[in-house]
Design a protein around this nucleic acid. Structure first.
Lengths: 150, 150
DNA sequence: GCACGATATTTGCAAATGCAAATATCGTGC
DNA sequence: GCACGATATTTGCATTTGCAAATATCGTGC
C-alpha cells in the first residue's frame, strides 16, 4: 500500500499553516510589519518584557534570526532592548514601545477577524476541540505544554 | 480584553507545524535529504510526473525556490525533468528516478511512525476529526479542496 | 575573590528564500 | 501562418535564515 499524502497530518498542518501565513502577511503589510514582526509583537502583547530566548520559543523563530529581527524592530521604534536592568546581565528583556503597543493593538482585531474567517462553519465546540487537539499534538512532540487552549 | 495567544489558532498551527518540521528534519537527515526535498519526494510518490507548478501547490514551496530545488535533486539523481514530451512545451514534468523512488519508500515508514507519535493518545476517530477540521480550515482560506482526508 | 563551566545573546558566513524580470512556448485572431 | 497576450519555468538579486563560533555575563568551588 502506498502513502496517502492528503490524509497525512504533517502535510495537512504544513499547508494550512503556510496558507494562513501567506494570507495574513498580505493583510498586515499595510501596517508596515512583516509576519515575523507581528509574531514578536503578539508575543509581547501577550506578555511584555520577554527575553530573546523566550520569544524564540513562543514564535518558533531561531534565536539568531530573532536577535537580528529585534534589531530591526528596534530601529523602527517598535520594541526596546533592556539589558539586565537589575538582574542577570546576560539577559536581554524586550519590551514594546508605545508605537509597538499601538501597532499590536491595531493588528489584533485583524487577527481576530482572520481567525474567525479561518473557522467559518465551525461551531464553538468544534473550534475548541481543534485547538485542544493541536495542543495535544504539540505536547506529543515534546513541545512544552504552556497552558490550556480555548 | 486582551488577546490570548495560547488560544489563537494561527499560533497553535504555526508552532505545531514548526515543531513537526524541525523534529522530522532531524529524522530524515540520515537519508541525505532535506525536509523540502522530502516534501517533493512525498508529492511525487503520491502522484508522479507532476509539473513544477503543481508541486508548488502541493508542497507550499515557492515556484522559483522549487525550480532550484528540483535542480539540486536532479543533480543528486533523485528526480528527472522531462520537458513537454509530447504535449505543452512550456511544462516541465518532474518524475522520480529509481533512486528517488527508493528514497521515498525508505522514508515513508519513518513518516508513518512519526505521525503515529504525533497522534499518541488520539483515538482513530479523534485523529480523523482533526484531519477533517484542518481540511475545512484550509478550504476556508481559499486553498483548493483537493480531496477528502482520513 | 579567582578560575572554570554554564547560560544568553550576538555575529560570521554560506545557503535558502521570494519577488520581479527575463525567457520560452502556447493559442488565438485575423 | 504571424503578431500578441497568456501561461510555465528559470534567473537576477537582495533579504532572510540557521548553524556554529565568538562574546559577555553568571555561579560555584576552592
Amino acid at each position: 500500500m502506498s502513502f496517502d499524502l492528503t490524509a497525512y497530518l504533517p502535510y495537512l498542518i504544513n499547508r494550512t499553516g503556510a496558507e494562513l501565513a501567506a494570507a495574513f502577511s498580505r493583510e498586515i503589510a499595510p501596517h508596515g510589519v512583516t509576519l515575523q514582526m507581528w509574531r514578536v509583537l503578539a508575543a509581547l502583547h501577550h506578555r511584555d518584557g520577554l527575553r530573546i530566548s523566550d520569544l524564540a520559543g513562543l514564535t518558533s523563530i531561531d534565536i539568531s534570526t530573532l536577535s537580528r529581527l529585534i534589531g530591526k524592530m528596534e530601529k523602527r521604534g517598535l520594541v526596546a532592548r533592556r539589558r539586565g536592568p537589575e538582574a542577570d546581565g546576560r539577559v536581554v528583556a524586550v519590551a514594546l514601545t508605545p508605537v509597538g503597543r499601538a501597532t499590536a493593538r491595531a493588528i489584533v482585531p485583524v487577527a481576530r477577524r482572520y481567525e474567525t474567517a479561518a473557522l467559518a462553519g465551525f461551531t464553538a465546540d468544534e473550534a475548541a476541540a481543534l485547538k485542544r487537539m493541536l495542543v495535544r499534538v504539540y505536547a506529543n512532540l515534546g513541545g512544552e505544554a504552556l497552558d490550556s487552549a480555548a
